[in-house]
């Protein structure tokens, strides 16, 4: 199945073709958000990265379906809880 991945702010990557902030991944059935994170080699530091599936907060175990959009968002805003 094919999912779209959006990489926000500091998770964007430099490449010879320029900055990469979106990509599509073809994943095997049963893939989860963790599969996306692993395939990109991103280390999830505490809750400093928000995992967002189709516009809603998700967690690493959230199952993916064809056409889903996953956003990896370094958490920001002046919220005042730890993180």
């Amino acid at each position: 199945m094919v999912v779209t991945v959006r990489l926000h702010t500091t998770l964007r990557r430099e490449s010879p073709e320029g900055v990469v902030d979106r990509l599509t991944l073809d994943l095997a059935p049963g893939a989860t958000v963790q599969t996306v994170v692993d395939s990109l080699g991103i280390s999830l530091r505490e809750d400093a990265i928000l995992l967002v599936l189709n516009g809603r907060i998700a967690d690493v175990d959230s199952a993916l379906n064809e056409g889903d959009e996953v956003r990896l968002i370094p958490a920001m805003s002046g919220g005042s809880w730890p993180g």
């Binding site: 926000h8 500091t10 967002v52 968002i73 805003s77």
Partner: peptide, 13 residues
């Protein structure tokens, strides 16, 4: 990125 980094985040939500 400054506070402007919030734009894609809020859009994403």
């Amino acid at each position: 990125y400054g506070t402007a980094g919030l734009a894609t985040m809020t859009h994403g939500f």
